[in-house]
Design a protein around this nucleic acid. Structure first.
Lengths: 230, 230
DNA sequence: AGGCTTGTCAAGAGAACTCTTGAATAGGAG
DNA sequence: CTCCTATTCAAGAGTTCTCTTGACAAGCCT
């Protein structure tokens, strides 16, 4: 019958993934990779860390089997290793949200007051889409839109919203979405649009949740093609 | 718009639960608490650690909002804080198993060879139960049986299986279950019963998975009653 | 080849984690 | 009240983690 040493070793291995997730920087990386694959350079810029440090965090994730990497020319692209990882990240957020009053304070500190913001759920958006006359705006960076987006959504990266206002049809209800509940791109887009007199609303969560719910997604023709994995 | 410092703080908080899970000892505690609440002393014995050390690990879990504790006389009982934690623990195991180079070896080292073992899934057991003529044996410690078990199961703790053989009806198919796929109690019970000429099979996973699947459960009248939580 | 860009490696300072030991505390029993 | 039990607290040694810095490697371009 199995002894304690072997049991310890087994649990220590089971827990490798948790250790890898157990760091704020790496969690941000996972959150970003949930949108699609990215190069080390892009990731380093997103989390405001040096390349060397970002690279080291990514290798920790790689060793834990949480991400996958492939080389393309002089760049190396990382992506989440499997849907099991997305589920793990979601379960972690849900467990954190279920407790800890402190978390609420931190969310408020980061996202600010959302009371003025019109927000709808995924189900409500689906209803609206069936009824037509909704414009869906993907306000994430272009690369993330290309890696996958809600069918029919227009790509208007957050930074371009103001200058590309005229491209958005008048008269229709506008729904903006981004990376998820902790992402502020859609918040700001909705505020900008509302200030311009448009009817704008944000989707409560983001693209990963849409995809996780099994809803249809669309990819750009120009998406960077990843070769099949070994 | 939220700045990086606030974002870092938010993710650092989100990740508290992962840090708490990111330790083999604490993972074993979670695994045991998945069966029901236990005192510090019992937990310390299960993981073969000192009381002081076990207590410290438990407080780490408490601070992370992963477990809940209540005092009863001179004892303190710990239990999982919510179903979200059970889901998190399951998601972690699934993510670890999805990649698993090394993990498979460690499982084999701990559980040994299961090729000789007759095993059935939850669905098969449900089918058998509907057809009748199955005896279900809960071979976990008595306390865990009392905290919740498969309806109609008999409590025969692993250590008593040999001496209480006569209590198990002859002629019927016997299905033994315990804590989960990494628990060896049911393995040994099945081997013992098979050696005695009985028709014995183990349930592939354990009680927590049964409960998580939303199947009915039963509690002993003598279960330690936890007061409603604040 | 040589230079450029993108990533990784290696070493080290400071912080956090883990386990041990011995003392302190809270509740129950006599 | 005193003793006993179950648990927590506090301090410390050894280990692991995190970030920085500067060197190294791999693939492009000319």
């Amino acid at each position: 019958m199995g002894n304690q040493q072997e049991k310890d070793a087994l649990f220590e291995a089971l827990v490798e993934a948790a250790k890898a997730l157990g760091n704020g920087r790496r969690a941000q990386l996972i959150d970003i990779l949930g949108q699609g694959e990215r190069s080390v350079e892009e990731l380093a810029a997103e989390i405001h860390q040096s390349m060397a440090n970002t690279s080291q965090h990514l290798q920790r994730l790689l060793r834990a089997g949480i991400v996958y990497s492939r080389r393309s020319g002089t760049r190396i692209y990382y992506s989440l290793a499997s849907p099991a990882v997305e589920r793990l990240w979601r379960a972690l957020r849900e467990a954190a949200e279920a407790h800890s009053g402190e978390l609420g304070d931190l969310v408020r500190a980061y996202v600010g007051n959302r009371a003025d913001l019109s927000m709808i759920t995924r189900d409500e958006l689906l209803l609206w889409l069936r009824q037509g006359d909704v414009v869906v705006l993907d306000v994430r960076p272009q690369a993330e839109y290309e890696a996958g987006h809600i069918p029919g959504a227009l790509s208007v990266p957050f930074s371009d919203v103001k200058s590309r206002l005229r491209e958005v049809p008048q008269g229709s209800e506008i729904v903006a979405y981004c990376r998820g509940p902790y992402c502020l791109y859609a918040d700001e887009a909705v505020r900008l649009l509302t200030d311009e007199g448009r009817l704008a609303t944000r989707l409560e969560d983001g693209f990963p949740e849409w995809k996780a719910a099994g809803l249809p997604i669309e990819q750009s023709a120009t998406v960077r093609n990843a070769p099949p994995r070994p």
